Each structure stands twice: as structure tokens, then as C-alpha cells.
Amino acid sequence: MNASETGGMRRLEEEIGYAFTDRTLLLRALTRLAYALETGLPPAAHMDALATLGDAVINVVVVEAVVAGGAHDKGAITNRKMNLVNMSRLRALAEGIDLAGYVRWGKGEASQRVWTSGRVLAECLEALIGAVYLDGGMEAAAGVLRRLGLTEKV
């Protein structure tokens, strides 16, 4: 980890309001598979598994917040969750913290600016939340999502 990566990670930690105990989790959350393959990093050094975990954590945090907010009907809970957790919403949250500027992209991804369309940036946010969860638990992940504005008005 070089000095510019360390400084960038500190800025990102300030943006999300969470300081990692294990910085390798944060670096992994910011590393795309293409970058890992291009640079010869080990198989576990990229974000994919963290994105899957983060997706699940986000869903739990949002459903918990919706229920705590007074929803008790299964259909209403599901509808509220779907309105809060979707690609567009997660992507907007990621854009709000300039997450694309911290991610280590593969050369092709960088030249195509893949984060400007589709689900890519939402997946990066999911990976970040997965890393927060592994580092600090559900309460830490919920705190970051609250600070980012996902669950503040549930």
C-alpha cells in the first residue's frame, strides 16, 4: 500500500464516518477483479465476495430500519425496501462520496469509465459496506448507511 493509497483511504474513511481497524479490508473493497488480475494479486484480493456480502448486509439494515419505523405488513416492508435499495439509489450514494475516485480499476474499465453506467458503482458501494461489516459488525455498517442517507428517513 503506497502513500497515495493510504491518504485516499483516510479521505474515504472521513467521507463515510468510519475508520477501519483492518485497512486490508478497505483496500480489498476498492479493488476490482480486473485490476487484481492485471497486477497479479491473489484471488482473494478483489471486491467480488465483499459486494455479495454487502448486498445482504444492506438488505438486513434497511429491513430492520423499516420495521423499527413501524412497518409490520410483509408487503409494505418489501415495497419500502425495494424503494430504498435499488441500483440507482446505491449508485447515487456512491457518487455522493466520489467512490469511483477511490476504486482501483482495471485498465479497460478505466478507459471505458465503466462506473458511469449500469450497476458497477452500486456494486462498489456494496463491497465497501461488506468490508465495513467484516471490520466493525452490523452496527458499524448500519451507521455508515445512515450517514450516507440510505436509512435516515425510513
Rank of each mutant, 00 (worst) to 15 (best):
M1I: 09
N2P: 09
S4K: 12
G8T: 02
R11W: 02
R11E: 09
L12W: 03
L12A: 04
E13H: 14
E15W: 09
I16L: 02
G17Q: 08
Y18D: 07
F20L: 01
D22V: 05
L27T: 15
L27E: 14
R28I: 08
L30F: 05
T31A: 07
R32W: 11
R32I: 10
A36K: 09
L37S: 15
E38G: 07
T39K: 08
L41W: 08
L41R: 09
P43C: 07
P43L: 12
A44E: 12
A45G: 05
A45M: 01
H46Y: 13
D48M: 14
A51Q: 06
T52F: 05
L53D: 04
A56C: 02
A56G: 14
I58E: 03
I58K: 10
I58D: 02
I58R: 11
V60T: 15
V62I: 01
V63G: 04
E64H: 04
A65E: 02
A65F: 00
V66K: 00
V66L: 00
G69M: 05
G69W: 01
G70H: 02
G70R: 11
A71H: 11
D73P: 01
K74L: 11
A76F: 09
I77E: 01
T78A: 10
T78W: 12
T78E: 14
N79K: 14
M82A: 15
M82P: 03
N83Q: 10
V85E: 04
N86D: 11
S88K: 15
R89V: 11
R89S: 12
L90I: 06
L90W: 03
R91W: 08
A92H: 10
A94S: 08
E95N: 12
I97C: 13
I97Q: 11
A100D: 14
G101A: 14
Y102R: 13
V103R: 09
W105K: 05
G106I: 13
G108C: 07
E109F: 01
E109C: 01
A110R: 15
Q112P: 02
V114R: 10
T116F: 06
S117V: 15
G118P: 07
R119S: 14
V120N: 13
L121G: 00
L121V: 02
C124Y: 06
L125V: 14
E126G: 06
E126R: 14
E126N: 15
A127I: 10
L128H: 07
L128A: 08
I129Q: 05
A131S: 06
A131R: 05
V132M: 05
Y133A: 07
L134R: 07
L134K: 03
D135V: 08
G137S: 04
G137K: 03
E139R: 13
A140G: 09
A141S: 03
A141R: 10
A141I: 08
A142Y: 02
V144Q: 05
L145Y: 10
G149S: 09
G149D: 07
L150F: 04
E152P: 00
V154E: 13
